[in-house]
Design a protein around this nucleic acid. Sequence first.
RNA 1: GGCGCCGUAGCCAAGUGGCUAAGGCAGCGGAUUGCAAAUCCGCCAUCGUGGGUCCGACUCCCACCGGCGCCUCCA
Length: 513
Amino acid sequence: MLRVYNTLSRTKEEFKPIDDPNVGIYLCGPTVYKPSHIGHMVGPVIFDAVKRYLTYSGYKVRLVVNITDVDDKLIAESNQCGVPMSKLAEEMTADYLANLAALGVDVIDCFPRCTETIDEIIRFTEQLIAKGFAYEAAGDVYFEVSKFPEYGKLSHRSVEALQGDGGGMAERKRSGADFALWKSAKPGEPSWPSPWGAGRPGWHIECSAMSRKLLGESFDIHGGGLDLMFPHHENEVAQSEACHGRPMAKYWMHNGLMQASSEVGKLGGRNTKPVEGDLAAQEVGKISKSKGSAPFRDMLKKFSGETIRFFVLSTQYRRPIDYSEERLHEVETGMDTFYRLFKRFERVASESFYALPAPATRKQGDFDAGDDPLLKTVAELRNRFLEAMDDDFNTGGAIGTLFDLVRAINKYADDEKLEEPSHRTPEKLDSFRRAILTLRELTATLGLFRQPPQEKTPGGDDLAGKLMKLLIELRAEARKKKDFATADRIRNTLTEIGVTLEDRPGGTDWSVK
RNA sequence: GGCGCCGUAGCCAAGUGGCUAAGGCAGCGGAUUGCAAAUCCGCCAUCGUGGGUCCGACUCCCACCGGCGCCUCCA
């Protein structure tokens, strides 16, 4: 049974789609006014895995991520750079999409833009006015929070607490808790015509409008960073539920935020006021303030998208993650164990791990282990993996069983001496292959190891490859003649320049660190 | 101040009212290797502190200490 932690109830609930087997997921995306940073990527990676796992579990999932391409920050940034807002938004959206691609996040079904949803936003606002939940005030339209008694049910805040301070509130508002659905345009600002005059959407209305347009009045999962719970998500609930008289989303999932490690945090002090108006990634307020928000694309120069994905998924999604390069390097080291096993599989079975046809669904992945000790272990570990994932997408726990699985398979290959062709039998190879296939199946649900890693140095017919071939041959000859001094000199020198040699029954492999 | 989260080994990180408290990185010992590398085996925690509940708590409750998030639009 799949269970999901629901922010609404603050408990884990059994996952039952509204319209089984269809599942609709809406995730708050970025405000595209600057290049995206690591914090923007946490949600997409997590929900990419959520969708993959739900799909694997038999559901038909539609995942929507919005792009906020009009907002105060965008206007400010565009004025400062002297670039039209639409052009700026277009460039930053391209940056965002490229980053997702690098992470292998490719299961998002659509990216609705706010500026392409203006009609729907206006209609939504009109409906709220007609139903008495919103009012116009001098070209602005505000949602009247006091008209929606359930306000605060998501973030568990009382309206009273919010109305206490009237000091800085806009004079047009009836109450400090009211929030803007539509803002009248100031001179020079981008605007759209509306029944209330030229203006633009407020901060929260787009998500209500887009989700209704693409997923319906009620859908299954609404996701976003923890920082968005209030006020953004609370306001979405108010807008949508006031308008439709039914729950907006059945499950609300909030992911923890990316933080700088304490080391870095010290440098930035406590200046952690997040960037406002940024739907998906006020997250890393700390990082962005203390480190100047290194663009994600720069991070990709240091680490592969796969490494970052693995890093993000190695922690349960509701918890904060401490970011540090050191941590990323450790993750790389751990992942190498997987890559080495995949290469080992290729040597032994002459088949690419990445081309293996992974069972697409949970049911297909079941198999009869019989009396085969390896497969029994594999089946057990597979169950543990699935149990972890069924428990509110515990990717961290699931990854732990993956390492166990790798060890079990390596041990089998060791014990059965599969590196030596003479010891291979069809039965052993079959067990080995089925175990690897299971690894393929499970890693696929996390979106991991779908492509071979970028080789640091291609070993093909380039110069380095040819030279290495020569050196390895010379060393092999030396070793044959027991001339270990020469053999070790070659290997030690290579080690110094970062090349590692691995001797094994079939020959010598090399890799660059 | 209000609402909420977290504190598990050197670092990261799962998890549980009683069974060996996963796994990763680092470290140590061993097998293997001409020596290495890789791989495998073994070792490495009593779960922030103090109380309470319970036959029994790291796991529930309270307090405290420490770390952290959010508290709208305008700014």
